[in-house]
Design a protein around this nucleic acid. Sequence first.
DNA 1: TTGTAGGCGTTATCAC
DNA 2: GTGATAACGCCTACAA
Lengths: 342, 342
Amino acid sequence: MPPKDVSLRVTIKDVSREAGVSIKTVSRVLNDEKYVGAETRARVAAVVERLHFRPSSAARALAGRRSFQIALICDNPSPYYVYEMQSGIRDRCEEAGVRMIAQPYDRQSQRLLADIESLIDSTQIDGLILTPPASDDPAVLALLAARAVPFVRVSPGQDAQQGPSTFIDNRRAAYDMTRYLIGLGHRRIGFIAGDPGFATSAQRLAGYCDALTAANVPVDDALIQPGDYGFASGAAGAAALLALADPPSAIFAANDEMAAGALSVAHQRGVKVPEALSIAGFDDTPIATMVWPPLTTIRQPTRRIAYQAADLLLAADAGDGVQQRELGFELMVRGSTAVPRA
Amino acid sequence: MPPKDVSLRVTIKDVSREAGVSIKTVSRVLNDEKYVGAETRARVAAVVERLHFRPSSAARALAGRRSFQIALICDNPSPYYVYEMQSGIRDRCEEAGVRMIAQPYDRQSQRLLADIESLIDSTQIDGLILTPPASDDPAVLALLAARAVPFVRVSPGQDAQQGPSTFIDNRRAAYDMTRYLIGLGHRRIGFIAGDPGFATSAQRLAGYCDALTAANVPVDDALIQPGDYGFASGAAGAAALLALADPPSAIFAANDEMAAGALSVAHQRGVKVPEALSIAGFDDTPIATMVWPPLTTIRQPTRRIAYQAADLLLAADAGDGVQQRELGFELMVRGSTAVPRA
DNA sequence: TTGTAGGCGTTATCAC
DNA sequence: GTGATAACGCCTACAA
């Protein structure tokens, strides 16, 4: 891109001249500092408004201790998840006058650490939000600790006390769902697991096993298919399950995206859902409730998590130290809520 | 968030001292300027590497004419579209050493203009990419022109010559699709339109009408349902069409998200797709090829558009002036490509 | 090919 | 309550 014109930028100086006060006073008003006379404040604010003055964030970051920017580190096979996460966090940031930098990354590539370092150094980020699997990456956590950069972890799997975090009881939720399916009379329940790199995958699988065991239903490894939280893997898992000599009467996919994949296979093969085959999902991305009304899903509103995470990060100077914030979930049965759980 | 520590930042000064050259020389190496001795360059580069030096983008933006940041202004009812757009543009930016700021916005709210102004002023963006409907907003275009901020328009509807842009021939594509459906023997073809605020909506509808007229099939208003490019509106449109006394034998939705909605309704009602009802989509978000193998769709890879748009913006200093870049599209018939079109 | 001086727009520090 | 003045880290312009 070509260099920009040295355009007629409105600066603090212009405001101060116009308002008849010093630059510092304008700065005080801008940053809501105290020790500014009420009328001075009003007068300055009026000039700011009139001149459409907007402080340069570059200058603020350079001179001050804050950059008014935070980053969202997010890589997830479900576009709906990413979308909800981004929108939710951005909304909160906007209210707080902070800019969110969305930093999609590729969990396959080994660049994550370097990306975050460069984010910290070049952008001077004020803090960041990590979604799985980055939220469990020991190297990342170590880096952030070493650099003293505030962060919030979404759905951490281990060392939950390391830094603030938001999460739901995934194991419990998967347990509830499985029990619900058992309650419907199912005994052979297939499970399509999530990406092994995500802590939530193991948690959800564990809940599934718990419920079977509690009901004296043996855990059959043939009924547990690997997946990666992506649509295609859900389809593949369902295909494998339906091809078994003794196929399951229900399939519980570890997230909605895979549940959708499973459903598409069922439809293709003419298997009636849910009459001949119950399919359940997890996560409450809109795809579940919108695309597949017959789907039973664990409702764990992504947007709510986003809000929580943002609030936790932005309110960090409340100074109440490390916080773990557990959210509730609900079991959505074919469009109608049931079994809410705090 | 609490103020950060005044940490031990590595600066150009450190590098210059370590390398035994002046600050300016380091700067030259950093910016790939010429007039630096080969060995000097190598030595400096080595030190940069060893010290993990990363220039502060705040300082660069403040001192220089570029901020090395561009923004993506995007609001679309399809998460897949947003996801592909973001990832694609970000990839290109990364290669170019530029940061992409994703700026989701709400097309309902009236804040768009103010948001962009604040983006320009506070962030000193180097340029931006506009997706519909922002790409056709006259106020936005005027603002950018006035401020001399480079931009690229994605799928503009009018004044296509105003600024560089990428697009496909939507009318032609919709024409082709409709003709294809007619070729299958359909005479009553329903159409679910996109959000009236998007220029593509009218273009696609026009193509649909063109094809019908060309085939001497009367355009029946009852077969044209309003929509907004969102899943729910696709479902609603399909429901309305199927409820007609004389329902269509095919439905052409103006985007894939709505086609998916239409399909879900068909499935719910037990209408066989595509035997009893053909459903066609448009846009090639993954939902089409992944979720709905029976779907016929206009393949207009979102990611390719993203690449084009980014390249157009990033290469703007090539200085070849305004450019309109038209991309090809293809008609995807049930998973297998057909009728490619440049 | 390399170096020096000055300033970008804001905040921090410390006087008044 | 308010205001000088010195940074912040880098780039531009100009000199050597």
